[in-house]
């Protein structure tokens, strides 16, 4: 109970809600890191997943590499990149991109690859070029699955972006790392709660987006 009431005190202390190191500023930093990571990961993983899903070439290699990337611990990568590149924004963002790419890549690949061959053939029979087959048939059909991968990645990135505070950056992880350093468990618990709320809120937004981008035809069959 002490811990919970301590956490509540920390969360409701007005001095924690205004200023440069305060919760709103840290939450914004946290969302900024996560946002940049997600944009980079989507730009890398979605086209690659589409290409591999569409052509079917190199799927074994891509899925294998994606699986191997998932096994890499983010904190270890952060330490390695920081030792190689020094302090700054790039090492933690790169480590988080490596965390985010595999779920997006495999989901996009799976979404495109699982489009029924009959639908593809029908599109070709109507005279669609390969590009048209991809953009008008495969991508719309793959979007719900790909969005699932993006939601998955966003959750992981928001939860793991706390490691940015392991070195000299901000984000909500600052409270987690600083709290641990001075054994202030109330502060740690409060920051964990904030990260969880942020992750769930983001997931709710992405779930709405996922529904919105799902083709109406798929939406009715899903019911």
């Amino acid at each position: 109970m002490n811990l919970l009431s301590g956490m509540w005190q920390w969360l409701t202390d007005p001095t924690n809600w205004s200023g440069s190191g305060a919760i709103p500023a840290r939450a914004l930093e946290h969302m900024a890191y996560s946002g940049i990571v997600m944009v980079v990961a989507i730009v890398v993983a979605v086209p690659l997943g589409m290409l591999v899903g569409h052509t079917g070439r190199g799927s074994g290699a891509v899925i294998g590499v994606a699986g191997a990337l998932r096994a890499l611990p983010t904190l270890g990568l952060l330490t390695l990149f920081s030792l190689l590149m020094g302090l700054g924004l790039v090492p933690p963002l790169l480590a988080l991109v490596i965390l985010a790419v595999p779920p997006i890549l495999t989901a996009t690949y799976a979404g495109v690859a699982e489009v029924s061959p009959a639908v593809r053939d029908a599109a070709k029979a109507q005279g669609m070029t390969p590009t048209q087959v991809l953009t008008r048939v495969e991508v719309p059909l793959a979007l719900p699955v790909a969005m699932g991968g993006i939601r998955n990645a966003a959750l992981q990135v928001i939860a793991t972006a706390t490691v940015a505070a392991y070195i000299n950056l901000g984000g909500l992880g600052r409270y987690l790392i600083d709290g641990l350093a001075v054994r202030d468990y109330s502060r740690m618990l409060g920051s964990v709660l904030l990260v969880a709320v942020l992750a769930l809120a983001t997931d709710a937004v992405l779930a709405a987006l996922q529904r919105a981008v799902t083709s109406p035809g798929l939406r009715t069959t899903a019911h």
Binding site: L83, L87, N168
Partner: peptide
Amino acid sequence: FEPINDGGGSLTVDALTRGDV
């Protein structure tokens, strides 16, 4: 002040020798 959470280990030493701090 730049917090580095490695207990004065190689990340901290590197930040110093590299001139980041």
